[in-house]
Each structure stands twice: as structure tokens, then as C-alpha cells.
């Protein structure tokens, strides 16, 4: 349920007030809404909390969407705003709570309670450092293999632009990770050299 991108979502019915249709639409879009949240939220903010706020906003405001064709871009805007505004608040609250229990900051993963491999964390960190226009399509492409066309519908961009941004974004991601790897290697070498000098002096 909701695992595949559904072109036949009853968006018009949902806008007209059909609550069952709205539930079906939500199931069809909640996964890519989660990706947009990841692309824009502060690291400490909890994905599930923010997604619940998006769900609430969909319930409250969907009737304001004038044209079903505009629903996806509208939902993206709502989601980005929640990620930025509520994310900041939630992030501050969470840091405060963690401080209460003697933690300065959440050093865990950025996807709520899910645990990620070290490789996934490292690549996600690098992906989140990409400029926004590359970050979103690169991440969305990983979500149940949304096609360029489907990503374009959400981002209101032509398919060819999406393909170009994904290709460039992937190259930038590769370069970022390469650079990080080189820096880590250099730091390691320096540290080893320093250790040898200290050992030699002793």
C-alpha cells in the first residue's frame, strides 16, 4: 500500500472533501513527502513528528488547492515550509530535552529512530550538503525509483532538467565524498607521522 507512485490518485475528490479519497492520496504521497522533509529539515528534528504535521496540514488546507494538477507542487511547498519552520523549533526542543538527560546533542542518525549503516550516514551527510536544486531530485530518485517525470511533477520542472540535475548531483556527491576520503587519509598520515616523531624522540 502506497509503495508505488500512483498516477491515479483521487486528488480531485480529496480536494472536494471526500475523506476516503484524501486518505488514499496521503498513502500515495507520504513517502515522497518524507524525502522532501529529509532534504530540508534540521538534523535533530524527528522525521515522524514533522510528517505528522504535514498530514495535519494536508487535512486542514487541501480544500484550498484550486487545481488538482497543482496538488503535488502545493504539497511540496507545505512540506518544505514545515521542515524549515517546525524543524527548527522541534530541533531546539529536542536538544533541550537531551540536555536534561546529560546529552549535548543527538549523534545518532537523522532518520528518527531508524538505524543506518555507517556508509549510509556518510553518504547522506554528503547528499545533504549538496545545493538544494540537486539535493531533492537525487534523494527522490532513491525513493521507490520515482521516474524523472514523476519527480518533475513534484518539483514543477521538465523531465530533462530533472535528469540533468540528478546526473550532476551524483557527480557532485562523488566529488564531495572523494574529497572527504582524501582529507581523512591526509589527516591519518599526519597523525601517524606525528606519532612516529614522538615515538622516535622517546
Amino acid at each position: 500500500m502506497g509503495e508505488r507512485w500512483d498516477q491515479t490518485l483521487p486528488i480531485a475528490e480529496a480536494i472536494a472533501g471526500d475523506s476516503e479519497a484524501l486518505s488514499r492520496v496521503w498513502v500515495g504521497v507520504r513517502r515522497w513527502a518524507a524525502v522532501i522533509l529529509i532534504a530540508h529539515k534540521p538534523r535533530e528534528a524527528d522525521l515522524e513528528d514533522l510528517l505528522q504535521l504535514v498530514a495535519l496540514q494536508v487535512c486542514r488546507k487541501v480544500h484550498e488547492v484550486r487545481d488538482p494538477a497543482l496538488f503535488k507542487p502545493w504539497l511540496r511547498t507545505v512540506t518544505v515550509n514545515i521542515a524549515r519552520e517546525q524543524g527548527r523549533k522541534a530541533s531546539r526542543r529536542r536538544v533541550g530535552m537531551l540536555r536534561l538527560v546529560g546529552r549535548s546533542r543527538d549523534d545518532g542518525d537523522q532518520i528518527g529512530t531508524m538505524q543506518l549503516s555507517e556508509d549510509a550516514k556518510r553518504v547522506l551527510d554528503a547528499a545533504l550538503s549538496l545545493p538544494e536544486k540537486y539535493r531533492e531530485p537525487v534523494l527522490m530518485r532513491c525513493q521507490q525509483s520515482m521516474s524523472y517525470k514523476q519527480i518533475g511533477e513534484v518539483l514543477s520542472l521538465p523531465e530533462t532538467t530533472i535528469e540533468t540535475r540528478i546526473a550532476r548531483g551524483r557527480r557532485m556527491l562523488r566529488e564531495t565524498l572523494d574529497m572527504q576520503a582524501k582529507q581523512e587519509l591526509e589527516a591519518k598520515k599526519k597523525s601517524e607521522t606525528r606519532g612516529m616523531r614522538v615515538g622516535g624522540a622517546g
Binding site: 513527502a33 518524507a34 531508524m114 549510509a120 547528499a127
Partner: peptide, 13 residues
């Protein structure tokens, strides 16, 4: 690696 992240996000969504 990014697909792994999105898989985790999907489970939450």
C-alpha cells in the same frame, strides 16, 4: 547507500 536511507524513511512514512 541513499536507497537504504530512503527505505528507512519509507518505513517511518
Amino acid at each position: 547507500a541513499l536507497c537504504e536511507v530512503m527505505h528507512a524513511a519509507s518505513a517511518i512514512a
